[in-house]
């Protein structure tokens, strides 16, 4: 069995990537499962998708905790505790990161910050996507193609058919599908073959079942008595672009503060705006709305 996990943000197309891999493997005659995992987030937050490929019926369901192949659509996700792409990586598995950084440099960075037994591979699928499709976020076809190559059991023909089918189902116009296909085939060619080894079956240690006890109602009932504690939850990791204020151009008009849906912009006593980067989701309304163009957008600095 090959277990593949995709990490992206909403809008990256990782569900579709997992389906391209799923359909391609299916066309190659395998038994396949693919599924996305949705959280509470409507859009922008980390999302995960899974594909399992086997030559006999699959006796697993749900999330993949011990993956053989992990594809990360955006390297900022490496640091995102909500995404946690390192979960369950083992010596036989491969961590593919979409990044312009070289494999060598990335491997060193990962080793320094988050040692993992898995092998590391990078590829700049964003550049390819930008060039062929024109939209940096539309990564489903290229990441799907890289996954097909790395899974090691899928041919170009199956990839092509699967990509077309999945994108048609999304209702993409055919010229756009053609461009996606071109990008996908290139991504397939560019991605090297790396042998994967499935994790050996894990022993299942006893988990220790509890005897549940009744808790006093002030504690044991589903309510929250800590108003505003959502501030503990960071949404800054959703950003692809970061709004940055150039204070010399700011004329303290309040517009960015008023328009920010999140309340992530506050004003100080001089009426200068300040962005709460822990929570700014990167919608860029402030960039669009600032009358003096004092808020500019910058590509999120890559952490790795």
């Amino acid at each position: 069995m090959i277990r593949v996990r995709f990490h992206g943000r909403g809008g990256h197309g990782m569900k579709t990537a997992s389906r391209i891999l799923g359909t391609a493997a299916f066309l190659e005659g395998f038994r396949v499962q693919d599924s996305p995992l949705y959280g509470a987030e409507r859009r922008g937050a980390p999302i995960t998708a899974f594909t399992r490929i086997n030559d006999h019926p699959i006796l697993e369901r749900g999330i993949i905790t011990i993956p053989d192949l992990v594809l990360v659509a955006d390297e900022t996700l490496l640091e995102d505790p909500l995404a946690n792409p390192f979960l369950g990586l083992h010596a036989g598995s491969l961590l593919f990161i979409n990044s312009p950084t070289s494999t060598q440099a990335m491997a060193e960075a990962v080793a320094a910050r988050h040692p993992t037994p898995a092998r590391i591979l990078t590829g700049d699928l964003t550049a390819l996507t930008l060039e062929k499709i024109g939209k940096a976020q539309a990564l489903s076809a290229t990441v799907g193609a890289a996954a097909c190559k790395l899974a090691g059991v899928i041919g170009m023909g199956a990839l092509e058919k699967a990509t077309r089918k999945e994108l048609e189902e999304l209702g993409l116009p055919s010229p756009l599908i053609d461009r996606n296909l071109e990008a996908a085939l290139l991504a397939f060619e560019q991605t090297p073959r790396v042998p994967l080894a499935s994790a050996p079956p894990q022993p299942a240690p006893l988990q220790g079942l509890v005897v549940p006890v009744y808790q006093p109602p002030a504690r044991g009932t589903p309510s929250v008595a800590a108003p505003g504690n959502i501030i503990l939850r960071k949404t800054g990791g959703w950003r692809i672009f970061r709004p940055v204020i150039e204070y010399d151009k700011c004329n303290q008009c309040w517009i960015c503060f008023v328009r920010c849906p999140e309340g992530a912009i506050s004003l100080d006593e001089k009426e200068d705006p300040h962005i709460d980067y822990d929570h700014c989701k990167g919608c860029l309304i402030c960039v669009e709305e600032c009358p003096t163009k004092a808020v500019v957008k910058e590509r999120e600095v890559h952490a790795w």
Binding site: G39, A40, P222, S223, V224, A225
Partner: peptide, 24 residues
């Protein structure tokens, strides 16, 4: 004393806890 009641949960272990409190 602001209180958020009837709040949504995501995650089976949270739901299980509250639902089983009803059983207890």
């Amino acid at each position: 004393r602001p209180l958020a009641q009837g709040i949504a949960v995501l995650g089976g272990f949270i739901y299980s806890y509250f639902r089983y409190q009803e059983q207890l």
